[in-house]
Write a protein that binds this DNA or RNA. Structure first.
Lengths: 329, 329
DNA sequence: ATGAAAGCGCTAACAC
DNA sequence: GTGTTAGCGCTTTCAT
């Protein structure tokens, strides 16, 4: 594969001129430009990003950290990130951490090593301490999950309000025994959604019953199924549940189906995230929609601004309760 | 951030020695090594991949092309690719083509530009001609979808046999009017699965009815739902259907549910891919499992071997019919 | 408007 | 075992 010097020779100019033509960086005679373009075509030349990146000491690659590919929740956010980044001349590298510190380190090193310019983290399990450390010298943006205490900029929704709205919806339908299928409360969003759950109970004078709060280890279907199994074994079973993730809700719904319970007749169910499957279940699932694509756009925008030295502020985006069959009355 | 020369100066050695320590490339005195390690620590040095890659003219980055993130079919394959690649010292860049030629081009250029070393394509919509062209100078492996005529190595399953097995299963259950919900037959796998469908009909002396074959535009839920809607409008409706993708089958199942039809009582349904959600539907879905993780491993292995100049051969992996509630008798 | 030359950070060939 | 040096492919002063 030809390099810039060969192109220069072929065109009878210097490599500097070829570079100028390539980057439109300073004026070049029309005639020269044509000679260069001609040479480029003849030699089938493609500029090497390696040389360019080394010289410019930037890679124009952004890392997007997610815990695993299998949660469809991330798909639309990634689309937003991707679209915006490409438009601004950056490519994204999708990184699955598997909540594995070794992998996480690999990715942190990529930015230390100049292989990537910055990070958008959507991984709630990430090692925040290390990330904070990295953020001192590099550009980082958090998406969905963030750190209340520190100043890494983030884009998120108001989880407490969202959870509160879900509860209000269920309470208005007449439910008084409402379970919360929550994930591990080491995650900020889990703590926030629980807060909304509790605030609603309080405001409507409903008792807070510890046995109605179930914390799962992961967000897989089986975690939701297991949670529902436990809830249905209680002496006084709940008549509704709010699961903090659609995947959990779908697992819970499966368990309800297996047990032959009628949803929403005997049991109402709400999820969170509005993943595409949530509209394919039987019955379809009431859920909270986050403006995923917009969140992706915002995160990418913030990261690139940060890379270019502009000041950035965290943003809170809107959410929406999508009412479907699983809470019809 | 310190560079190799500063480390060398700090340690009182040459940059070549530092490089040797870094890469274990030739022997270095224990004392020298310690001095260097010390300096690296003191300066918080991280080697720049940009410099290294330029020098070695490799990026150790592999591109994985998929049409879109939202089809969960790809998840496990990607995990296989990722795990194997990381172990061999490569990182992967997940590229969503959106079946968009412009994006496709961006990715092709990345390997031309030396930003990436090779490509694993899982995108059936890819521009094969261009890919063949690229394959002349670069390493490429196809996964799932391949090109019968050319010699780009691939890893795949025997789609015809898989489809045949599905049909045999349905026929043995007593079904005689079996529909095929196929995707666009511009895709090789679609043509192969149709072949299996037809061969089974022939062998069991069942008529091939054109109106029982429905081709969808995409693989989304609604495509499956629409297909089923049409099939149920036929004068003589089928009693079973084989959808070439779980997403299609799930959409079709949704439509059957909406119509109040009992599955499998009144209608039997089979999907393809064994995505995790296929076990969450009501009823659960009979489907064909491909050894996704293994396919990913194999593809990555082939690509890296190819990059290292070893000869590689295409591989055909096994598949398995997973019988679940949607075809229980 | 264009060219010469330095240098981004690294590794490998060669010399000692 | 270690240092010197050249060069990977590019961009960017600084001249002219």
């Amino acid at each position: 594969m030809a390099n810039i010097h060969e192109v220069a020779k072929q065109a009878g100019v210097s490599s500097a001129t070829v570079s100028r033509v390539l980057n439109n960086t300073s004026s070049v005679t029309e005639r020269t430009r044509q000679k260069v373009d001609q040479a480029i075509k003849e030699l089938n030349y493609e500029p090497s990003m390696l040389g360019r990146n080394l010289r410019n000491s930037e890679s124009r690659l952004l890392l997007v950290l997610i815990p695993n590919f299998s949660n469809p929740y991330y798909t639309e956010i990634i689309n937003g990130i991707e679209d915006f980044s490409v438009e601004r001349g950056y490519n994204i590298l999708l990184c699955e951490t598997d909540s594995n510190p070794t992998r996480e380190n690999t990715f942190f090193n990529m930015v230390k090593n100049k292989l990537a310019d910055g990070i958008i983290s959507m991984d709630p399990t990430i090692n925040m301490a290390k990330l904070q450390e990295l953020a001192k010298k590099h550009s980082i943006v958090l998406c969905s999950e963030y750190d209340e205490l520190e100043r890494i900029p983030y884009v998120a929704i108001d989880n407490e309000v969202a959870a509160y709205k879900v509860m209000k919806h269920l309470i208005r339908l007449g439910h008084e025994n409402i379970a919360l299928i929550n994930s591990d409360e080491k995650f900020l969003y889990a703590r926030q959604r629980r807060k909304g759950y509790e605030r609603a109970l309080e405001e409507f004078d409903l008792p807070l019953r510890q046995e109605y709060i179930y914390n799962t280890n992961n967000l897989d279907f089986q975690d939701g199924a297991q949670a529902m199994r436990k809830l249905l074994q209680l002496d006084e079973t709940p008549t509704a549940a709010f699961a903090v993730s659609d995947t959990l809700a779908i697992g819970a719904l499966k368990e309800l189906n297996v047990k032959g319970m009628n949803v929403p007749g005997e049991f109402a169910l709400v999820g969170f995230d509005n993943i595409s499957f949530s509209n394919m279940t039987n019955p379809t699932l009431t859920t909270v929609a986050q403006p995923m694509y917009q969140m992706g756009i915002a995160a990418a925008n913030m990261l690139i601004d940060q890379l270019q030295g502009k000041p950035v502020d965290s943003v809170m985006l809107d959410h929406e309760l999508i009412i479907r069959e699983s809470t019809l009355n």
